[in-house]
Design a protein around this nucleic acid. Structure first.
Length: 493
RNA sequence: GGGUCGAUAGCUCAACGGUAGAGCAGCGUCCUUUUAAGUCGUUGGUUCUGGGUUCGAAUCCCAGUCGACCCA
């Protein structure tokens, strides 16, 4: 009598569900089991003593990502946070019953194993398994082992799969963690205090961007998600926290692109009794230490390859410093650019292939040239200084030429990486700048910030660093989505 | 918002108006030091969705969904 069990062999999910059911029927529930580990894979590999096979015992755990079944023995590899390590499971070591159980494991299952380290004929340090345990059954198959997961939509929506099968993604996103960690240590070593300021705010200040609006039910008021942390951190300077920083999520309700995610991470740092010159030293020290200690170029230099331009960016060379005006004059080939009437500026900008919005002010036309024609060409680290006063209402005016600001914009790889200011601390000038910027929309002026300035803010240098863009640069990524674990996508169909 | 391109087996991809295929994965067999292991056999499809053209559509047309790139 044959039973009429339907053939499910083509349906991997059904096959794995059946295996799980069989395990449970045998009194084993892999989701209840746990295992003790002594080593991550990389640490276990380092624990091997050359020439002394099977003297060091380790317990490791991870996801099965390679299975090579050789009949009465198997070579498998497991993946953990540090990478992969090979396990060798022999029938006459683990016993017939256990071996039969091991043979039923699937790619993707999470197992723990204890055994001794040895080196295979081809020289790979491997765990000769004495005991093992299944601690989580994978009911879904892994993506293909050789090509990995390449559908970009699935990579972003199911990042966990990307991380399992695409080593480059895992390395890139781990590097981001190390970058952020390094920044914290770097600043803490210099007596900066990390603070946390509100994400929900009554008015969106500190930058020009459209905010997300949300509603607080109990208070029955609308709030916006912050578009910068600047005005809060400056209040900390007023409060006597002389060196502060925040690595915070910022939300801007604007387009999504290769360079923009609606939520992104910004470092803002403020240092009392410093100025934009001090910020130059700080950012240069920070970035060179990041390249030296985190990226660690193989040749010992401070150069990293810039994917988009094919050039090498040298963090160890001279960092160019150039005035905004000089860049504009060079790009337009027009020494009289700033004296030209608006109509001539428009004509000349359009002749350069730029589309100029009719409502733009003159500084916006000029800045369009900067962002479209100049910034993308600034591959090596470049401090652009003496920006026109209209561009940053929160910075101090230059003493010798009040039409420009004591600020820089650090541009690397054709991207703005870090703007920094000598911070405006004159409450009256600040109010005037705000009012000029706000025009009719005075209700958006942060009056409490101005009140805080009236209490006296020490002179200070301040700087913002886009962490995502920095990570694009440092990891050679093509898109911001590649350095954000879960980039924003339209909700799936 | 506009333009271009894409969506086919769990994954990576073929087929481009005439019976939807391959590799990996799966299932079954052989193999106790493999390295994308090898070996023999084998299952698996609402070709993104909905319309249309056609004797016949994965393929051509229209609309939609989602994604990528470029532009705004």
């Amino acid at each position: 009598m044959s039973d009429h069990t339907p053939d499910i062999s083509h349906d991997q999910h059904a096959v794995r569900r059946q295996k799980l059911a069989d395990l449970r029927a045998a009194g084993l529930d892999p989701f209840r089991a746990n295992c003790a580990t002594t080593h991550f894979s990389g640490d276990a590999l380092k624990a091997y003593v050359e020439g002394q096979d099977n003297t060091v015992t380790v317990s490791v755990a991870g996801r099965l990502v390679v299975i090579r079944d050789m009949g009465k023995s198997q070579f498998v590899k497991i993946l953990d946070q540090q990478g992969q390590i090979q396990l060798y499971v022999k029938k006459d070591v683990v016993g017939d019953e256990a071996y039969a159980q091991f043979k039923k494991f699937d790619l993707g299952d999470i197992v723990g194993a204890t055994g001794t380290l040895f080196k295979t004929r081809s020289g790979e340090v491997t765990v000769r398994v004495d005991t093992f345990i299944l601690v989580a059954k994978a009911l879904r198959p892994l993506p293909e082992k050789w090509h990995g997961l390449s559908d970009p939509e699935q990579v972003y929506r199911q990042r966990y799969l990307d991380l399992i099968v695409n080593a480059e993604s895992r390395a890139r996103l781990m590097l981001r963690s190390r970058v952020v960690s390094h920044i914290r240590r770097f600043l803490e070593d210099r007596s900066f205090l990390e603070v946390e300021t509100p994400v929900l705010e009554a008015t969106a200040g500190g930058a020009a961007a459209r905010p997300f609006v949300t509603h607080h039910n109990a208070l029955n008021v609308d709030f916006v998600l912050r578009i910068a942390t600047e005005l809060r951190l400056k209040r900390m300077l007023v409060g006597g926290f002389d060196r502060v920083f925040e690595i915070g999520r910022i939300f801007r309700n604007e387009g999504v692109s290769r360079r923009h995610n609606p939520e992104f991470t910004m470092l803002e740092v403020y240092e009392a009794y410093s100025d934009y010159r001090g910020m130059m030293r700080l950012i240069r020290d920070l970035l060179t230490s990041l390249v030296r200690d985190v990226i660690r170029p193989a040749d010992g230099s401070l150069r990293i390859r810039h994917a988009a331009s094919g050039q090498e960016i040298d963090f160890g060379g001279e960092w160019r410093e150039v005035r905004y005006k000089d860049l504009i004059i060079a790009a337009t080939g027009d020494a009289e650019w700033f004296a030209r009437p608006k109509a001539e500026k428009i004509a000349r900008a359009e002749a350069m292939g730029l589309s100029i919005h009719p409502g733009w002010e003159e500084f916006e036309i000029t800045n369009e040239i900067f962002s479209k024609q100049i910034e993308p060409t600034l591959i090596q680290p470049t401090f652009v200084t003496h920006l026109p006063r209209e561009l940053c209402p929160l910075a101090k005016l230059n003493r010798d030429d009040p039409s420009v600001l004591d600020v820089f914009e650090l541009t690397i790889g054709g991207m703005e990486v870090a703007p920094a200011y000598s911070e405006q601390n004159d409450p009256d000038v600040q109010r005037e700048m705000f009012e000029r910027q706000a025009g009719e929309e005075r209700q958006n002026i942060d009056q409490d910030f101005l009140l805080a300035l009236e209490h006296g803010m020490p002179p200070a240098g301040g700087m913002g660093v886009g962490i995502d863009r920095l990570c694009i640069l440092l990891t050679g990524a093509e898109s911001i989505r590649d350095v954000i674990l879960f980039p924003q996508l339209r909700p799936g169909a």
